[in-house]
Simulated scan of single mutants.
Amino acid sequence: MDYIEQQALQYPDMADKYNKLGDLFSRKLWHQLTVALLEFVSDPANAEAGGGLVRLCTEFVANFEAKMNQLRFVQILCAVGKTCSDPLVATQLFETALEKRERLGPEASLLLESELGLLVLRAGKVAEAKEVVEKGKVAVEELESAETAVHSAYYRLSSEYYKTVGPPDSFYRSALMFLAYTPLEGIPQAERYTLATDISLAALTGEGVFNFGEVLATPILSMLDGSPNAWLGSMMQAFNMGDIDAFNKLCAENQETMSAQPALVSRATFTKEKIALLCLMNMVFERHSQDRNIPFEEIAARTKLPVDQVEWLVMRAMSLKLVKGVMDEVERLVHVSWVQPRVLEHSQLARLADRLGEWRGRVDEAHVYVEEQTPELFG
């Protein structure tokens, strides 16, 4: 209480807030005090005016931290750590808390380790961060709780780590998981545009990324609207639809801007191959199941490739397990029996709905025909 009284006197404009914390402490209302503390430390105004959030932890919270919900206690520490101008102060705060790992439990420990790993990574200690990421991957998969804060912290660390060391595929997957567990408003405004840019570039250049529907379904790409990188959002749409004409148009219109992106410059040949593969996938998806014998010439016309490269394109798609089927080199046909499942956007869903409607119509016709031909069965 000495600390609370000192702070209330030193910062009169915050006296009511400090007195509320003191009152809850005196009455031993630990749950209410935990909620009030989390609200207090999460308000940037308190950090700027009070100037003593680390002291709040070491001189006040430390006296009853064992009585608190341990996950909420760690969330309080993490919020305080983010206000520290010196990363070493936050590191010391987290390391001290992790000495009581057994009391914290697996969830709170993983959350704290993830935040500590982020500080380590930003300090340039990549090898140490890698150890935290690899260890955390096992731990996060074993969690049974639906608490999203833990998953969000881990996948934020994982995405930043893979952004640093690569490959783009791993960054893309981690960033998607981060977005799945983190509402857009939970991401600092300054970071949203950077994340939208980075995840778009990773999707375009990642060797194993052929499903764009997942990221297009999130609101993060809206951060590109009206920005210098707005073309990236359009490029993502073109890749998702396998639209080579739109791709070529965007490349022509944004040649200078694209040249300023090292990831695209170094992977220029691959991105052209990738849009052709996505074009083939969409071509198959658009056709009825009974109309999957596709002539080489038709594929060449759609993908804007010479006919003699179609066979290579199809073999590449099969090797990547994007499609399954058989090539008839004599008839110059490709019979596709399967195409990789993907998250569909609205126009693709509408096309699928139309196809289901057609299928239902054929089933009804078959039913009527059977009734007419065999009335004794339905009498």
Results as ranks from 00 to 15, higher is better:
residue 192 R to Q: 12
residue 357 G to N: 06
residue 88 L to R: 15
residue 124 G to H: 04
residue 153 A to R: 07
residue 102 E to V: 10
residue 376 E to K: 12
residue 282 N to Y: 04
residue 323 V to M: 05
residue 40 F to G: 07
residue 210 F to Q: 02
residue 329 E to S: 12
residue 192 R to T: 06
residue 216 L to C: 09
residue 152 S to D: 01
residue 307 V to I: 11
residue 225 D to H: 07
residue 294 I to E: 04
residue 122 R to Q: 15
residue 311 E to P: 09
residue 366 A to N: 11
residue 203 A to V: 04
residue 291 D to Y: 06
residue 225 D to Y: 08
residue 135 K to P: 08
residue 276 A to K: 06
residue 319 S to I: 03
residue 323 V to F: 01
residue 226 G to T: 03
residue 230 A to E: 13
residue 295 P to E: 08
residue 45 A to L: 10
residue 4 I to D: 03
residue 114 S to C: 06
residue 269 T to D: 14
residue 241 M to S: 12
residue 16 D to K: 13
residue 338 W to I: 02
residue 178 F to N: 10
residue 280 L to W: 04
residue 280 L to K: 10
residue 346 H to I: 13
residue 322 L to M: 05
residue 6 Q to K: 12
residue 284 V to N: 00
residue 287 R to I: 01
residue 319 S to T: 13
residue 20 K to W: 08
residue 229 N to G: 10
residue 320 L to A: 05
residue 348 Q to S: 04
residue 85 S to W: 06
residue 351 R to C: 14
residue 9 L to I: 08
residue 223 M to C: 15
residue 47 A to S: 09
residue 28 K to D: 15
residue 346 H to F: 05
residue 95 E to T: 03
residue 286 E to T: 09
residue 274 K to W: 04
residue 238 A to L: 00
residue 242 G to N: 01
residue 338 W to S: 02
residue 5 E to M: 13
residue 125 K to T: 07
residue 194 T to H: 11
residue 319 S to Q: 11
residue 261 Q to G: 06
residue 271 T to S: 05
residue 270 F to D: 06
residue 306 P to F: 04
